[in-house]
């Protein structure tokens, strides 16, 4: 059931976020001062035409790039004040990533890939946590395989499992269906939906696919680095027309 739970404190929040590349007249502003709040347990899609600053926004949210100005808060903690070590720890413990190109380590098995963030943190998975996750994602049979022996959909599910195993505050997904066929893509979105509804994860997904965006609780439209509109639970055709407007 889609029951958006709006809690008092957002899991992720930005304040006047600006990212500018270069200096002087040739400078390019990728993100031009956005204030966003992502409620805990919500599934948000970020859409926008190419060059609208979607990816840069995601990088800023993950602390992978430093903003030119403005701030990013994860569970109330200011990312911009953290050093490399602090950022690394935050990413490891509080952020999960899912990428278009899966980005699994080829030398490790599916299970090792899933457990990697915990291993890096020197933690052991909570009893049953891996099993629950693997069962939910339908990966039980494939744990001993290396990524090269998995299908694209399976690889992406391994990537989701890796993102969820640390019980992060927010899962950032960058075009997660981009490299998948329609069926696998739909299946993947089901899994993300489940993670949100049943596991209470906060998900931010960058996509250019209106069908994918329609599975989210709300859609943020970006244009030229600024927020162009918010569509709460839109249907795909609503998104399409809104996108036309953003162009």
């Amino acid at each position: 059931m889609r029951t958006p739970v709006v809690r008092s404190a957002p899991a992720l929040r930005t304040e006047g976020l600006v990212k500018r590349y270069g200096e002087g007249p040739t400078a390019v502003t990728a993100v031009a001062g956005v204030d966003l709040a992502f409620p805990a347990g919500g599934f948000t899609a970020v859409m926008g035409p190419s060059g609208s600053g979607k990816s840069t926004l995601l990088h800023l949210l993950a602390g992978l790039e430093r903003p030119t100005s403005g701030r990013v808060f994860i569970e109330g903690r200011d990312l911009t004040g953290l050093d490399d070590r602090g950022l690394t720890r935050l990413r490891r413990d509080r952020i999960g990533f899912v990428f278009q190109s899966f980005n699994l380590l080829p030398a490790l098995t599916a299970e090792q890939n899933i457990l990697l963030p915990l291993r890096l943190a020197g933690r052991t998975p909570a009893p049953g946590a891996l099993k629950t996750l693997v069962t939910t994602l339908g990966l039980g049979e494939r744990l001993r395989h290396r990524p090269s022996a998995l299908s694209g959909g399976q690889r992406q599910r391994v990537a989701i499992a890796r993102a969820l195993i640390t019980e992060p505050a927010v899962v950032l997904a960058d075009e997660p269906t981009g490299a998948l066929d329609v069926a696998a893509g739909r299946e993947l979105l089901d899994h993300l939906r489940t993670a949100c509804d049943e596991l209470g994860r906060t998900i931010v997904m960058v996509t250019h696919d209106p069908l994918a965006a329609a599975r989210a609780d709300r859609v943020l439209l970006l244009a030229d680095g600024a927020l162009h509109g918010v569509l709460p639970r839109p249907a795909p055709h609503e998104i399409l027309s809104a996108m036309e407007g953003a162009r």
């Binding site: 990413r91 413990d93 030398a107």
Partner: peptide, 15 residues
């Protein structure tokens, strides 16, 4: 790229 990925999922430089 592998190393960058390790760093992304939380490996510290020291690690």
């Amino acid at each position: 790229r592998d190393i960058a990925l390790l760093r992304l999922v939380g490996a510290r430089r020291g690690q």
